[in-house]
């Protein structure tokens, strides 16, 4: 189990180009679809709660999910797996002092990967939203949050705090 966590997170880490959100679709595919380690709902909640504490999204997700699957040893295995690819790549760049990443072929490869990353993030956002956007209240909330994030550039932690507060008051009322 620990080995499987390590190797799967290593794969996820090796393909995370463009920040933490780029990792979510790949990680969801492994943890939810392929391995059934967590449910779709748990995954969405994970994405929310891990952003309320400090740290990189990719690292926090690995710790959280690893712990959920196999306790503290699981958290260590998952984190090692997702951190090791970037550690090795940067070490290679730093030790050889070559800028092979500026090599035109490598640059072309990554230029091709990027549009796909955008597509994957977008689709994973919409898919995660599919269940959430079933009520009018949630559609309204999502639109408001999207506006706050995109136009007013509200900090993610504040956005989550607004979400938490609105959930606490609005959902309670709608249940009564």
């Amino acid at each position: 189990m620990l080995w499987s966590l390590f190797i799967n997170c290593f794969k996820v880490g090796a393909f995370t180009i463009g920040g933490g959100y780029a990792m979510l679709p790949v990680m969801k595919d492994v943890f939810v679809n392929q391995k059934n380690w967590v449910s779709e709902e748990e995954f969405v909640d994970m994405v929310s709660v891990i952003q309320t504490v400090p740290g990189a999204i990719a690292v926090n997700s690995s710790i959280y999910l690893g712990r959920k699957v196999a306790g503290i040893p699981g958290a260590i295995a998952a984190t090692l797996g997702s951190v090791l690819p970037s550690f090795l790549i940067i070490l290679l760049i730093a030790t050889t002092l070559t800028s092979w990443y500026q090599n035109p072929h490598v640059a072309n490869f990554f230029a091709g990967v990027r549009p796909a990353v955008v597509g994957l993030i977008l689709v994973s956002g919409i898919k995660l939203g599919k269940d959430i956007l079933s009520s009018k209240l949630n559609i309204l909330l999502t639109l408001i949050f999207a506006f706050l994030a995109l136009v007013l550039k509200i900090h993610p932690v504040l956005l989550l705090a607004f979400g938490a507060l609105s959930g606490m008051f609005l959902y309670q009322r709608s249940e009564e």
Partner: peptide
């Protein structure tokens, strides 16, 4: 509260893209 964060996260992922 955790359920309330779901629309926020959906919005954040889509705006990240």
């Amino acid at each position: 509260s955790i359920r309330g964060m779901r629309p926020a996260v959906t919005a954040m992922i889509i705006t990240a893209a």
